[in-house]
């Protein structure tokens, strides 16, 4: 996909230095240019242009099938684009960029272990161990309000508790970018509120949030910036206030007004 500007470093010392640079360097902004994703002969993402800057909490909205979830998975490097460019500060999505990102899926994937062990697993995958790992896990369980449920099998937690655990698991690894795919869909208001609080805390701590939601109320509450997706393209991208006051396109206007957009 993307050509490296410099030849690959040769000596171990150079490699270590390059690795340090990579750790230090930000992966923002993220950029998609003429992005295409095809499946089964259909263009699900169709020439999409997007720029994700450090800072604002970006909310992706749009009708079903607009390609919101697909876009998240492309940005996270879980699937490969069919054509076009996608990069994070010049780096193609892959193992390296994914290390600096985390994702919360619409249906939380709970490993068949205790709530605490789910956190331990994620932290161990990031190379943590021993006491720091245990302390970090305990801290995040407490932040998610799950301290008392630490030993409970994760799959026996309620839907809201599972999603809180999934958000805590994602945030515990200290990602620079956090993707959330409808994290509060089909949750009760109290659980949704708890999740939104975790998200806002993370934003305050400097994490770039990219959130897909169907809930316009949630979009209004959380968004600094709104991206409106329609049929695999970005139909509008604007600061939240402007988007909700005066949506740029007709489709977006209809969507904000609550009319059914197909």
């Amino acid at each position: 996909m993307l050509e490296l500007a410099e030849p690959l470093p040769q000596t171990p010392l150079q490699r270590a230095a390059a690795a340090r640079d990579l750790e230090a360097a930000t992966i923002l902004p993220g950029r998609a240019e003429d992005l295409v994703y095809e499946a089964g002969g259909r263009r699900l993402i169709d020439g999409l242009e997007l720029r994700l800057e450090a800072g604002p909490l970006t909310v992706l909205v749009g009708p079903n099938g607009a390609g919101k979830s697909l876009l998240l998975r492309l940005l996270h490097g879980l699937i490969e684009p069919s054509a076009g460019q996608l990069h994070w500060a010049g780096r193609a999505p892959g193992k390296e960029t994914r290390r600096r990102q985390a994702m919360v899926f619409q249906r939380p994937v709970m490993l068949r272990r205790s709530a605490a062990a789910n956190l331990h697993y994620a932290l161990r995958a990031k190379g943590l161990d021993g006491l720091p790992l245990a302390e970090l896990a305990r801290d995040w369980l407490a932040r998610a309000g799950l301290a008392e449920l630490a030993g409970r099998p994760a799959r026996l937690l309620s839907g809201g508790e599972q999603q809180r655990l999934a958000v805590a698991r994602a945030l515990s690894t200290g990602p620079e970018v956090l993707f959330l795919d409808e994290p509060t869909a089909s949750l009760d208001p109290a659980s949704a509120l708890a999740i939104e609080e975790l998200i806002l805390e993370a934003r305050a701590a400097g994490t770039k949030i990219v959130l897909v939601t169907h809930d316009l109320g949630q979009a209004r509450r959380l968004a600094d910036e709104v991206v409106f997706l329609y049929r695999g393209r970005v139909e509008a991208q604007a600061p939240a206030e402007r988007f909700f006051d005066d949506p740029i396109s007709d489709k977006a206007r209809a969507f904000v007004a609550g009319r059914i957009v197909v």
Binding site: L78, Q101, M103, V109, L111, A122, A125, K126, T173
Partner: peptide
Amino acid sequence: YDEQLRSLGVERLAATATLLWD
């Protein structure tokens, strides 16, 4: 598990071990 494990940056071999354990 696939996308979740890849999201967490778990390597193929470790992911297979996780699948066997879970």
